[in-house]
Design a binder for these strands. Sequence first.
DNA 1: CCTCCAAGTCAATGCGCATTGACTTAGCGC
DNA 2: GCGCTAAGTCAATGCGCATTGACTTGGAGG
Lengths: 199, 199
Amino acid sequence: MNDTATLTRERAPPRKRDAEATRAAILEAAKRQFAEFGYDRAALRDIAGEAGADVALIKRYFGGKEALFTEALKASIRPDFLREWDRATFARDIATMMAGSPNRDETRSHSFQFLLRTATSPTTAPLLNLAVQERFMGPIRDWLGGEAAPARARVLAATFIGFLVERLIRGEPLQGAEREAFVEHTTALFETMVSPANE
Amino acid sequence: MNDTATLTRERAPPRKRDAEATRAAILEAAKRQFAEFGYDRAALRDIAGEAGADVALIKRYFGGKEALFTEALKASIRPDFLREWDRATFARDIATMMAGSPNRDETRSHSFQFLLRTATSPTTAPLLNLAVQERFMGPIRDWLGGEAAPARARVLAATFIGFLVERLIRGEPLQGAEREAFVEHTTALFETMVSPANE
DNA sequence: CCTCCAAGTCAATGCGCATTGACTTAGCGC
DNA sequence: GCGCTAAGTCAATGCGCATTGACTTGGAGG
């Protein structure tokens, strides 16, 4: 009797024999666990477990751990993520988001956490670079527009990433005056990046 | 004494039986390898190897992998790192540094790479948070001064980290016009953070 | 030259994990 | 109902690694 049911994650209800659905479930679990644990500490066993599938199916459907990771990475970068933010309130929205805890808006932070974990693992960094270049930098560049868009996109992306990390690291949530000041300064920071700075 | 001659594996010349020296060598190798490979992929065998010592000595002198890591982490955060930058040229210096490759100024980036790898590994993040709070945030806060220093320190630290990550990820080096624009915008960005923004 | 202890070595042990191939079963077409 | 194929299961294998305890050796003090 294997009781992997003790895991906190809910197991999907018993699925009919459906290759497509199984594959999708595995990919979903992979996205989540790679994002949460990083490449090294994510175990195929557990991923399969969460998906309600067997480890061997990962081999069948994806080939191996690295291949699964690559696919999960691709699936985690949505090129249209910028459209979700209103241009007018962009800076403040970002600032507010960064002031919060990562657990709250899990849906959105999934993919970014994924990026972070990937970014700093020496093994996976090369994989990331490729994906980011076309699916992350590109959109930001277009979204920014104006002169020197590529360089400005880099600056924006870097800053963005930094705040994600800070939020990830942060121990206790921001509160009171510090939180307000944080939001103000962060808003100002992102605003200077969106509207071209005057020399 | 030159030391970092070859990338492969510098073995120190046969050391006399000296517990202190051995301990130090191990710690040094640990700092380097943890920074380069991250916690998970750094192997005690290799660390000991680089230090010209045996794995078992790591147990004797440090207790285990996690203890060694913690110590290496502490040793990697220098609370006075900010003093190295001239206040007047701070922003531009940072920008120039960020425009370069991480391999060039290895000495300085060691400790930061360490931070990054630590930051995004779920296991080690808690350890980091503690260390960073007092040895990283504190100094920045004092260095910044002025009103809302804690919040502004956070903003500065976050941005700083982001650029480190971006630099770490970046595939090919920045060149030509993009590099120039990048430096300009980054300089401007850091300047607004040092000199208090006017409301 | 001898003793003894700390410094350093060696090899066994066990764990967690990915990989893999042989096995079992569901379910569709006939 | 029958059989065949794809979907899903199981267990063996092997690798990399940290841990650990028993062993060996250097070298200083007598």
